[in-house]
Design a protein around this nucleic acid. Structure first.
Lengths: 150, 150
DNA sequence: TCAAATGGTACCATTATGGTACGGATTGGC
DNA sequence: GCCAATCCGTACCATAATGGTACCATTTGA
């Protein structure tokens, strides 16, 4: 339902935890601090490291640190790191045989536009923003008029 | 990967086809016109009818018509009709036991904000917009600088 | 009465996801 | 030099979601 995966959700929680701590942390420490199983934490940390959101130090006294200051890491980057390049539709990243149909191809540019809008929405929120517990914007009032459409 | 389902994709194709035709169409006509299997078309049409995006007439000489003019139907409505209420995160629509943790709850309001941004992005494009094959906006130039993040 | 159409539901194959485990590679301390 | 602690890569399986199809009931016009 156009929903991020649980691992992506975990990655946000983990990154917020790490940003608040500030120090280099082992996967075990992060697991205990965030109440997420060690194996799962490990998986998430490795994905984030591969995408240069985290830095890792191997060997004894090793661990993970943020690769950049929280303000420089956007939610879009985190989602992309965990779920691959942001592509709302299938034809955005893979070639499809039926895409050569006359009626579907004109839609592609529109999907790209929608895709871009979603991407910029995710890019507008940084890890730094997620550190402050209470945001300034109010959401509930804006969401309600869209629930019932006649 | 934050991707719409194939059925949602089909629903867009079907609605564009119907909007271009303008007349009342049977599911068989739509199936043949859009190259989507009849059973699948039927499933999509029923979902769209339940959400008041289409009107249906039963019995012989029955069929489907758009419930509103194309300008009044947004992509957000279509996605919501096919995939349920737009909720990027799990905690947005279901209660979760672990959500009572101190570190995860502050994130909820941020997800709501992101959710709203995505929703308004999808709401900004109407079925009417999808009818013109070549849109006015250019997307490729904007997308490229985001592919590699160091 | 019959044929054509929508409505509802149930089913299964395929795919994606979530979660875990295991062995290998690296590094600091004794 | 050895050992323990840690990250790294990958493979595995259970579960859930999705895609696609089929079937029968209901409705309605000729």
């Amino acid at each position: 339902m156009l929903r991020i995966s649980k691992l992506t959700d975990y990655s946000i929680v983990i990154l917020v935890f790490m940003a608040k701590d500030g120090n280099s942390l082992t996967s075990r420490q992060i697991s205990e601090g965030s109440n997420i199983p060690l194996s799962t934490v490990s998986k998430v940390l490795k994905s984030l490291t591969r995408k240069d959101i985290l830095c890792s130090t191997r060997g004894a006294t090793g661990g993970y640190t943020l690769a950049k200051i929280p303000k420089k890491t956007s939610v879009a980057e985190i989602v992309a790191a965990m779920e691959g390049p942001l592509a709302i539709t299938e034809c955005s990243d893979t070639e499809h045989a039926t895409c050569s149909e006359e009626h579907t191809c004109p839609l592609k540019s529109h999907w790209n536009h929608i895709n871009l809008a979603v991407k910029s929405a995710l890019r507008s929120v940084t890890l730094q923003d997620l550190l402050s517990p209470i945001p300034s914007y109010t959401v509930n009032a804006v969401t309600s008029p869209y629930t019932n459409i006649s």
